[in-house]
């Protein structure tokens, strides 16, 4: 459905940082939990978090404004769905300008939605807006090629769930509704995206029995 645009995900930061920070901010608790013989760390020294987390800084391309990603094979097949035939769906979305409005609003809603904005937090929204537009435009048969990565690798490491996916669908429905796409056409478009769920949501069902993921 949506694609993450930076190869190595900074998701780890979102996950790990709070607890690491917590450990720093409550030295008494940390201290009491340590065995007397442990190596002493100078807690007053500023922590180089980039080094702690193995952070590598990447520079945006001065022309496109995008952060470079590792090379991959480009193909329309990466879009994960076959395009509609005929012009009906492209017309329902108002052609390429309409699709662009839907995509921009969709990205805006996702990045401000308290339920899922953390997933987008450290990602390249410039690239996302471009590749998402290409994907929607291709599937809606509005005359584009898709140059992004496939659904599985573009969502790798996001740790997203069915609940996140549903929130995303609601945002897409809102973006389409606000841009005058009729409900039947909205659902037709969603029918192309819905089968991708296994590739875009990483954490599946919480098991009733046995080891939990």
């Amino acid at each position: 459905m949506m694609r993450k645009t930076v190869l190595s995900v900074a998701l780890g930061i979102a996950i790990m940082a709070p607890s690491a920070v917590m450990a720093q901010e409550v030295p008494p608790a940390a201290e009491s939990g340590e065995a007397p013989g442990d190596a002493q760390v100078d807690r007053d020294a500023p922590v180089d978090w980039d080094r702690e987390f193995g952070v590598v800084r990447k520079t945006r391309d001065p022309v496109t404004g995008e952060i470079p990603v590792d090379p991959y094979v480009q193909s329309d097949a990466n879009a994960g769905a076959s395009p509609f035939t005929g012009e009906g769906m492209a017309r329902a979305f108002g052609g390429q300008p309409g699709i662009r409005r839907v995509v921009d609003r969709f990205v805006e809603l996702n990045t401000t939605d308290p339920r899922i904005k953390a997933i987008f937090g450290e990602h390249d929204m410039v690239r996302l807006r471009r590749t998402l537009f290409e994907q929607f435009c291709l599937i809606l048969n509005a005359g584009c090629h898709y140059t992004g990565r496939d659904m599985k690798s573009s969502h790798k490491g996001l740790g997203s769930t069915r609940a996140d996916l549903n929130a995303l669908v609601e945002n897409l429905q809102q973006a389409m509704r606000e841009n005058g796409v009729g409900f039947a056409a909205q659902n037709r478009f969603l029918s192309k995206l819905a089968p991708m769920d296994a590739d875009v949501s990483e954490r599946g069902e919480k098991r009733l029995l046995g080891k939990r993921r």
Binding site: I15, A20, E34, F53, G54, V55
Partner: peptide, 20 residues
């Protein structure tokens, strides 16, 4: 933009969780 070495972070996480 930041990218992260996940193994180190995971180690740190476990330690921090244990202590805090």
């Amino acid at each position: 933009i930041l990218t992260t070495g996940r193994r180190r972070a995971a180690t740190r996480w476990s330690l921090a969780g244990l202590l805090a």
